[in-house]
């Protein structure tokens, strides 16, 4: 008898882990205001680990603001943000960031490889130079996203899609657990879009979590397991299948019918 009970215990607890893992990102009561005008309000979120999370919402909904607040690039008015159960300041090394492509000057005199190698800087720390090891790592990441041959090009000589892949390769080199990506699919060619999707799935299979600002409602249910519908407040958040509904989209986008038409098309397809 004691044998059976000793054996039964771990089987029962297999469904409920004894040490519940901290969420990669948990946000409690976050409000961000700019010139006293709130941009995002009362955000409460718990992102499950190992998921591809989409953030959608109309222009000015505060999607980028939410990312930047999580990364402490802009001050928050109130609220609490934890990364794997700890404040961001302590967990920086676990977080990677892919900013919007337009956020930098692509005429800057720098090669694609040098941009990708920036992902190694945190580990290098102050003063230390990029060496052979870092360069090899950057080259490998560029090959992984299919732009290996453009390593020595000056970045203005790359197409929009290639530039976006440079940013993704840089994020790969950072070797983070949680990625924030701001509109990586914006204005890229079909091949790049496919490369990004493959990359996201690859990251997910390694147990990493990606939070992606997205603008194309037609591809939402294809790309993301989890969805945040944002319009200053969180309208709905949860598994895409549950929250990507006509009703929720109506609440998020209001009366913008042309957008909703493409969305309903996408819903019909899924």
């Amino acid at each position: 008898m004691p044998l059976i009970s000793a054996h039964a215990k771990p089987v029962a607890s297999a469904h409920l882990p004894e040490h519940p893992k901290d969420s990669p990102l948990s946000i409690h009561d976050l409000t961000v205001a700019y010139h006293r005008k709130p941009v995002i309000w009362d955000i409460d979120l718990n992102i499950p680990e190992g998921s591809l999370v989409g953030i959608v919402g109309p222009n000015g909904a505060g999607k980028s603001t939410l990312l930047k607040a999580c990364l402490e690039l802009i001050p928050k008015t109130s609220g609490l943000i934890n990364v794997y159960g700890q404040p961001y300041q302590k967990q920086r090394h676990l977080v990677g960031y892919v900013p919007q492509r337009e956020s930098v000057d692509w005429d800057f005199p720098i090669s694609a490889l040098d941009v990708v190698a920036m992902g190694t800087y945190r580990r290098l720390g102050w003063f230390k130079k990029v060496g052979k090891k870092e360069r090899a790592k950057a080259r490998k990441a560029m090959e992984q996203v299919g732009i290996g041959e453009y390593a020595d090009r000056q970045i203005s000589q790359l197409s929009g899609g290639q530039q976006q892949r440079v940013f993704l390769a840089r994020a790969l080199v950072q070797d983070a657990q949680l990625y924030f990506m701001d509109e990586p699919f914006a204005a890229v060619d079909a091949a790049t879009e496919q490369a990004i999707v493959e990359l996201l799935k690859d990251l997910r299979s390694q147990g990493k979590t990606c939070i992606v600002v997205h603008h194309d409602l037609a591809t939402v249910s294809k790309y993301f397991d989890w969805l945040i519908l944002l319009n200053m407040r969180v309208v709905a958040a949860g598994p895409t299948k549950e929250v990507f509904t006509r009703e929720n989209l109506h609440k998020t986008y209001g009366g913008k019918l042309d957008l909703l038409d493409s969305a309903s098309l996408a819903l019909a397809q899924s």
Binding site: L71, Y97, P99, S103, I110, M118
Partner: peptide, 8 residues
């Protein structure tokens, strides 16, 4: 080149 990345 990328001050936001520098901060993160």
């Amino acid at each position: 080149f990328d001050p936001a990345l520098a901060d993160t």
